[in-house]
Computed example of a mutant assay.
Amino acid sequence: MAQLQTPSAPTINTPLPNWQHFADQALSGIPLTNQQALAVLQAPDTELLNQLAAAYRVRHHYWQNRVRLHYLLNAQSGLCPEDCHYCSQSKISTAEIDTYPLLAEEKILAAAAQAEQLKAGTFCLVLSGRSPSPKNFERVLSTIRTIKANHDLKVCACLGLLDESQAQALAAAGVDRVNHNLNTSEAHHGDICTTHTFADRATTINQVQKAGITTCSGGIIGLGESAQDVVDLALSLRALNITSVPVNFLIPIEGTPLAGQNTLNPRYCLRVLCLFRFLLPSQEIRIAGGREVHLRSLQPLGLYPANSIFVGDYLTTPGQAAQTDWQMIRDAGFVLEAADGTPLEAPLLMANNPPNSKQNL
């Protein structure tokens, strides 16, 4: 398995790029060359603030100082027949997680209400598994219709591999977006999953777009990929015209094949976010799973290239308290973005924290 290469500083005779020129290219619709893209990831730490400033210029052009919040519900956990090496829900995982079939509709609706309370604009409904059974798919469609009728939320559905008829049914039910991550580059995909292909994932994205639904797709950084794999992943997302891009950083969960994989540091993670902003200038870029683990005290800096985060917990791992996220957003001078796209101030700290996890659902 290829190992993530820790970027080394250039020699004293190597000229450093002008990162503002990279921003100029992004704003002009000109993609970085492969050499330029690799330079972003391989730059020395002394260049990080300059890279962030250039990436923020692009981010601010499209998103100003707004931050979107997404809320994630793992509505069906574990019991997955796929062998994704990073995933605690896969058939080859021995991780100790809660496993359960599709939640009852009232529990999903309670989670949607909680998403509104936490100021999220998008409710992300996730089911483990290769693809939903016909019975569960009909239940999901019914629940989505109820959410859309009763909550001011966008709905993003993550249901695994989908065919044309399923994508059309989701569109008819009012789904705003479908998530299906590419996860890594096409060249590296076979090293992390053998039960489906990179092409299978791309086909689902194409079916969703044909149905008129916008797409959410990103990847996981830290899977043992090379810097070139990271560049190729971003370029694949650009070629597929993805609208919303979650950038995850691997949490090496005990019981998964990648449990010992730990090659990331906060500065490299920030450079990845800068690269994604340069190559995907107008897209919503979300700092997703692993944000708290790998960015740590540098989390606020991630908001300069990225314009979106998850609030609350992730699929099988906890996130930080919503009030901590709100305070981070306020302290950095950003504002929240409501479901209708209008800006609103992040709530001030309160004496009683609002609920943050799904443990009572």
Rank of each mutant, 00 (worst) to 15 (best):
M1Q: 05
L4S: 01
P7S: 06
A9I: 00
P10G: 02
N13P: 00
P15N: 06
P17N: 12
F22S: 03
L27V: 12
G29N: 10
P31H: 08
P31D: 12
L32A: 06
N34I: 14
Q36V: 08
D45S: 01
D45V: 00
E47K: 00
N50D: 13
A55N: 04
H60T: 13
H61Y: 10
Q64L: 03
H70M: 14
Y71K: 01
E82D: 13
E82G: 07
D83T: 02
D83H: 05
S88Y: 02
Q89M: 10
S90M: 09
K91S: 13
I92T: 10
T94G: 00
E96D: 12
T99A: 05
Y100E: 06
A104N: 12
E105L: 09
A110Q: 13
A115M: 11
Q117N: 15
L118K: 06
K119E: 09
T122E: 12
T122N: 14
T122W: 06
L125Y: 11
N136I: 06
E138A: 15
L141R: 01
S142M: 08
D152T: 15
C158F: 10
C158Q: 10
A167L: 09
L170S: 09
V178Q: 05
L182I: 12
T184N: 11
C193M: 09
C193I: 11
T194M: 11
T197R: 10
A202G: 11
T204R: 12
V208D: 09
Q209C: 10
K210Y: 06
T214P: 09
C216M: 09
G219A: 08
G219N: 07
I221W: 05
G222N: 03
A227L: 15
V230K: 02
V231C: 07
L233Q: 01
L237G: 06
L237Y: 05
N241C: 12
I242Y: 08
S244Y: 04
N248R: 08
F249E: 10
P252W: 07
I253S: 01
L258K: 01
L258C: 03
A259M: 04
A259N: 04
Y268R: 04
C269Y: 07
L270D: 00
L279N: 03
E284V: 10
E284H: 14
R286P: 00
I287L: 15
I287Q: 03
I287K: 04
E292N: 11
V293N: 09
S297I: 09
P300G: 11
Y304P: 00
N307M: 07
N307V: 05
F310P: 03
D313A: 10
L315Q: 06
T316I: 01
T316W: 00
A321P: 01
Q327E: 10
R330C: 03
D331I: 01
D331T: 05
V335D: 03
G341H: 06
E345Y: 06
L349R: 13
N353T: 13
P354Q: 05
N360H: 15
N360K: 15
L361F: 08
